[in-house]
């Protein structure tokens, strides 16, 4: 089957998934105790004021009617208005999501760049230094909550040592100057596109601490799977055969073994991208990162129904898209896999 037809079919699957997710989220959020109208109006507001607000948001109508109306708007690309920001939810998402995406990508890159070589080195020498380090990393990932690591990281590298910035995506002055036009919303790319190396460096600099903390979600998994996968591959006859061909050990490991060992790493890594998005809620909170995680956190706190639903739908789309990408790359890496 052609790649585009496969992708098309997979994306079509999004429709029932999104329907289900929206239905569940919609009704779940409504049965939660609390009244957003009252929250917004404040404790001193009169009952009429609250009722007026409720009518304004359409909260006074029957639930099912509200859901159908919501859906009909979503189909037209309108996610409704945020109760808190009073802006369209789509606009909010467009503002906040790129920051999260940038953070998640940075964490993923960090995971790959550190995790894969570490896992390979660990597999090559059982009981060696790399093996021990990767053991510690695996354990740390299970034992240390991300929230705690982020807080301690902030404490040490920002407050105590002052080596790294403690919050935001850019220095305040740079942020104000609007130095680079937003094209992708990813500052690292935008600054490169604009050729502004100062912003580029500053954006990277701000990414270091949050991305490192966030990568703790994926790193242990990737190290562990790389190590075990590489160990298994090294026992395979085709590795012995590659040596028998007289290829240098570098090539035997780095090409013949690694290309096989990466297949499970890719699928595990791809799946844990979802965990990254989950972890970003906590990390963004600690580092004041203006991302979707922080937005979701706030919208849940205020029972901002439209925002909660918007975030959920976006997360679903991201999740499914990432899985699709993983499948496609997977099929490229492993010729025995047929996309079906």
């Amino acid at each position: 089957m052609s790649l585009s037809r496969y992708a098309g079919r997979r994306l079509l699957l999004l429709v029932p998934v999104l329907l289900t997710i929206s239905l569940v989220t919609f009704f779940l959020s409504r049965v939660l105790p609390g009244d957003p109208a009252r929250l917004i109006a404040g404790v001193n507001a009169s009952d009429e004021q609250v009722a007026r607000l409720r009518a304004e948001f359409g909260l006074d109508r029957p639930l099912f009617e509200q859901y159908v109306e919501y859906l009909s708007r979503v189909v037209r690309g309108d996610l409704g208005t945020s109760i808190v920001s009073r802006r369209s939810v789509s606009a909010d998402l467009a503002d906040f999501f790129p920051a999260t995406l940038e953070l998640a990508i940075a964490a993923m890159v960090l995971t790959a760049v550190v995790g894969i070589p570490l896992g390979v080195a660990a597999a090559l020498r059982r009981g060696g230094i790399a093996d021990n380090i990767s053991g510690v990393v695996s354990l740390a990932g299970v034992a240390l909550p991300v929230f705690w690591v982020a807080t301690v990281g902030l404490l040490i590298f920002y407050y105590k040592l002052g080596w790294l910035p403690g919050s935001g995506r850019l220095d305040r002055a740079m942020l104000m100057s609007n130095a680079v036009p937003s094209r992708t919303g990813l500052l690292v790319f935008d600054s490169l596109l604009a050729g502004n190396l100062r912003v580029f460096g500053n954006a990277l600099w701000h990414l270091v601490l949050p991305a490192s903390c966030l990568s703790l979600v994926t790193l242990p998994r990737v190290v562990r799977i790389t190590r075990s996968s590489m160990r298994e591959v090294l026992e395979q006859p085709y590795v012995a055969a590659a040596r028998a061909k007289g290829l240098p050990e570098r090539r035997v490991i780095g090409l013949h073994a690694l290309k096989n060992a990466l297949i499970p790493v890719l699928s595990i890594g791809g799946l844990s991208f979802g965990f990254l998005l989950g972890g970003s809620v906590l990390v963004e909170q600690v580092f004041g990162w203006p991302g979707i995680g922080k937005y979701a956190f706030d919208s849940i706190n205020y029972l901002d129904y439209n925002a909660v639903l918007g975030v959920t739908l976006l997360a679903t789309v991201v999740f499914i898209t990432v899985n699709l990408l993983v499948d496609v790359v997977y099929a490229r890496l492993d010729p025995r896999i047929r996309l079906r």
Binding site: P237, A241, A242, R243, K245, G246, H256, K259, N260, P335
Partner: peptide, 26 residues
């Protein structure tokens, strides 16, 4: 290293199970 370069050039080997001995992803 020198021994390795003799493999494949001066002395070669064919394995029993060719499917297992050929790299599946190349």
């Amino acid at each position: 290293a020198r021994r390795r370069t003799m493999c494949g050039t001066r002395i070669s080997m064919v394995f029993q199970d060719a499917l297992a001995a050929l790299n599946p992803v190349l």
